[in-house]
């Protein structure tokens, strides 16, 4: 069992090239996804704050 796992990790002696390729691809794709989601949340927050500002201002104007 152990031998099978070790053989899998060694990748026929090309582990140094194959694993980095997969790691870079995973990091790249997950990173792209993660940053896009984060940016969306950030912009939604800005919009919410802006809306609040505006509604406050309009209320103030009404009071005046």
């Amino acid at each position: 069992m152990i031998e099978v796992v070790v053989e899998f990790i060694i990748m026929g002696g090309h582990a140094y090239y194959i694993w980095p390729a997969y790691i870079i691809a995973t990091v790249g794709i997950l990173g792209l996804w993660f940053f896009s989601i984060r940016e969306l949340k950030y912009q939604k927050q800005i919009l919410a704050n802006l809306k609040e500002d505006i509604s406050q201002k309009t209320q103030q104007r009404k009071c005046n």
Partner: peptide, 12 residues
């Protein structure tokens, strides 16, 4: 997701 971000940015 990115289109949504840009739509939000435009609106803001």
């Amino acid at each position: 997701t990115r289109i949504k971000v840009l739509l939000l940015k435009r609106r803001i």
